[in-house]
Structures are given as C-alpha cells and as structure tokens.
C-alpha cells in the first residue's frame, strides 16, 4: 500500500465520506450528546475506539465465520467492545460517562460501526481495515465536535467549557430543537460547498 493511498484512506472520513455530514449515518448520538463540544469529543473518541477495534477483529476472523451468521457474529464483536468502553469510562471518566449515559451502550446500533464492519472490514485485510476505522472515527469525532462546538457557542456563549461572551446565550441551541436546526444548517453548508465544487469543475 503506497503512502499516498494511506493518506487518501485517512482523509476520506473527514470530507468526502464524512459519516455524519455526507453519509448521514449515526445521527442519534450526533443529536443526543452534542450540547457541548466536550461531550461531542468524548462520544466521538468512544465510538472511534469501538470502530477501530471491531474493524481489526472482524478483518482477522472474517474467514472463520460462515456467511449466514456473519451479521450476528459482527454484532457480538461490536457489542463486546462497546461494553469494554462502557466499563472503562464508568471507572476512569465517571463524569463523562454520566453525561453520555444511554448513548454509550447505543454505540452498538450506530449504523456507522456495523456498516463499516460489513462493507469494509469483512472484505479487507487487517491494515486497511484499521486505517478505515481510524478514518471513519476521526470523521465522526470531527462532526460531533463541530456540532457540539456550534451548539455550545450559540447556546451558552462558551467553548469547551470556557466562557467566550457574557450572557446566557440562545437557549434553544442547548435544547433538543437546536440540535436538529444546527445539524440541518451544517449539512446545508456541506451541500452548498459541494455544489460550488461541481460548478467549478464544469467551468474548467
């Protein structure tokens, strides 16, 4: 594998194939835990760990699993790593664990994780599968931090817990409706950028 293709592999998750803003996958935690940038970062890293580990294990055992029980076996592998994250966070990061709550066990039904296991890790060798996990994880974390940051900035005039502006902020962005609205506008921004890029290509 050339170093160039490694780089393309790694960056695809951030822009071209961003799991959240472009592929629209795993939106439940994206909306549910992003009231602050810190929460977004924590959730993103937890999901990244699960993505990388399950991608590695699945690419290793792919030849041992008969196709009919492929999906259930993958789900068990993923669920195990989710439980590992759950236990480790409860022990070492109790405050964050409490904030993320229900959304940690729900990583198991995050379409990104099972989607990558099924469509990538089960068809590729260890190294590309690992890279794919890293890339998708980074893309997911990036999306969560962006959305969390925007909501925190508008909703409480602070970023990563630091007060940026005086005052209470636009409450709605901390609450449930703000999550939907902020995500809507971010996706619109990505669409708009894409349309400009295609226009530029056509002109050239």
């Amino acid at each position: 594998m050339s170093s160039r293709s490694i780089i393309t592999q790694l960056t695809k998750g951030i822009s071209r194939e961003n799991p959240v803003f472009v592929l629209l996958l795993g939106l439940c935690p994206v909306l549910g835990v992003t009231s602050t940038a810190i929460n977004g970062l924590g959730m993103g890293l937890a999901t990244t760990f699960v993505l990388i580990m399950s991608n590695i294990v699945i690419s290793l055992i792919k030849h041992l699993i008969p196709s009919k029980v492929r999906i259930p076996s993958f789900i068990v592998v993923i669920a195990s790593f989710v439980t590992v994250v759950d236990l480790l966070m409860a022990g070492y990061l109790p405050a964050l664990h409490e904030q993320l709550g229900l959304f940690i066990p729900l990583i198991v039904v995050n379409c990104i994780v099972l989607g990558r296991a099924e469509s990538f890790a089960s068809r590729n060798d260890l190294f590309p599968a690992f890279l794919d996990g890293v890339s998708m994880g980074i893309g997911f974390t990036y999306a969560l931090v962006i959305l969390g940051g925007i909501r925190e900035l508008l909703g409480s005039y602070s970023l990563f817990g630091l007060k940026i502006l005086e005052g209470d902020g636009l409450l709605v962005f901390v609450l449930a409706p703000g999550a939907f609205i902020a995500l809507g506008f971010i996706i619109a921004f990505f669409e708009w950028r894409k349309s400009i890029a295609t226009k530029a290509k056509k002109a050239a």
Partner: peptide, 18 residues
C-alpha cells in the same frame, strides 16, 4: 465466499465461539 460451509453445526459453532 466466506470461509467455512454454512452447515448448521458450523453456524452454531462459529456464533457460539464468538
């Protein structure tokens, strides 16, 4: 493609051991 044959025993064995 994937690996072993999908006999009932193999299915149970694979999922069970995982």
């Amino acid at each position: 493609m994937a690996g072993p044959k999908s006999s009932f025993l193999n299915l149970i064995l694979a999922l069970g051991s995982v």
